[in-house]
């Protein structure tokens, strides 16, 4: 039982981690709490749905997975379109407000943007839940008492791959280093000749792409719903805060902790309270160690 819950927790945690990375990056580089991050996940999931429906006739599956080439195309498309959407929202909403004298204008705007995007999803795709496939997957036993589906294993592997990739991006590439420098000290970054506009753009591209993947993975293993991203916003923030805002690895760790905690909570509480668990954990962390597990903000 516990083993199974742990496995489920890691699977959910991987999704949360990907979403929380984007959140923690915008928090650190653009310096505001983006309440519309959840909707980037939602749009990612729906963009992928477009591609998947377009390829509805193509029968291709990878081994035991429930999907094949269409899903790979869908993931790439979702990442690209979600990044574009994020840049568009930034351009229309956040960029003009960055020079406002009201210091939290950005946060209020992101709250409004989140509402708007959620309504747009309903307007475009309707309120009913959707699925990428109707195939039922057979779960296999990987450890005594722990059953997972091949899709779930894929999900965790892909997350790990993306995190490693992001690590190399941030630590090895010039752009990645520029992003870290901007996060540390935006003014200094500007005077040392870093193209801040480009850094902002790439923050949205990286954050948006990871959010899209997270949304697709969540849609694959749970379901696609207009409120899916909003329902994940507390776990996303909880993960970012738990790990220490600004820390990419903290977000991953936080995501796993939140995912596992939400699943273990089933032992004591009805499952409908899972999101509240994220909230309680967050409050507990803020009380005990406000800087999060991995301490000081640093990408």
């Amino acid at each position: 039982m516990i083993g199974q819950l742990l496995a489920n927790g890691i699977i959910l945690g991987a999704t949360i981690a990907l979403g929380a990375i984007g959140l923690t990056m915008t928090y650190n580089i653009l310096d505001f709490a983006n309440f519309a991050q959840g909707e980037l996940l939602t749009f990612g999931a729906y963009f992928a749905l477009i591609a998947v429906s377009a390829f509805a006739g193509v029968h291709s599956t990878f081994g035991a997975l429930s999907f094949g080439w269409p899903m790979v195309v869908a993931l790439l498309l979702a990442a690209a379109l979600t990044s574009l959407l994020a840049i568009l929202v930034d351009w229309l909403v956040f960029r003009p407000l960055r020079r406002s004298s009201i210091q939290v204008a950005l946060v209020i705007a992101s709250f409004g943007a989140s509402l708007l995007l959620r309504h747009l999803v309903v307007l475009i795709w309707g309120p009913q839940p959707a699925y990428y496939t109707t195939n039922i997957q057979i779960s296999t036993q990987i450890l005594p008492g722990v059953r997972v589906t091949p899709d779930q294993i894929f999900l965790v592997a892909l997350t790990a791959l993306l995190v490693v990739g992001l690590h190399f991006f941030l630590s090895r590439t010039k752009l990645g280093k520029a992003m870290r420098a901007t996060a540390d000290d935006p003014q200094l970054a500007q005077v040392t000749g870093i193209d801040v506009a480009r850094v902002v753009r790439w923050t949205w591209i990286v954050g948006g792409s990871l959010a899209a993947v997270a949304g697709v993975l969540y849609g694959m293993t749970v379901q696609i719903l207009p409120e899916m991203g909003f329902n994940l916003i507390l776990p996303l923030f909880a993960a970012a805060i738990l790990g220490g805002v600004g820390s990419v690895y903290g977000a991953v760790l936080g995501g796993l902790v939140i995912g596992i905690a939400e699943n273990l909570s089933v032992l004591f509480l009805t499952p409908t309270y899972k999101p509240a668990i994220a909230f309680l954990l967050m409050i507990a962390v803020l009380l005990v160690r406000p800087t999060g597990i991995l301490g000081k903000p640093k990408l």
Binding site: A33, T270, T272
Partner: peptide, 28 residues
């Protein structure tokens, strides 16, 4: 109590958290 000593937006996150939690309780 847990958030007012911390940076501004933590209160924002906590208040939206309470709004969601209240709704969960109301529903469940």
């Amino acid at each position: 109590i847990p958030t007012l000593r911390l940076r501004d937006d933590y209160l924002a996150i906590a208040t939206i958290g309470i709004a969601i939690t209240v709704q969960l309780i109301a529903t469940n």
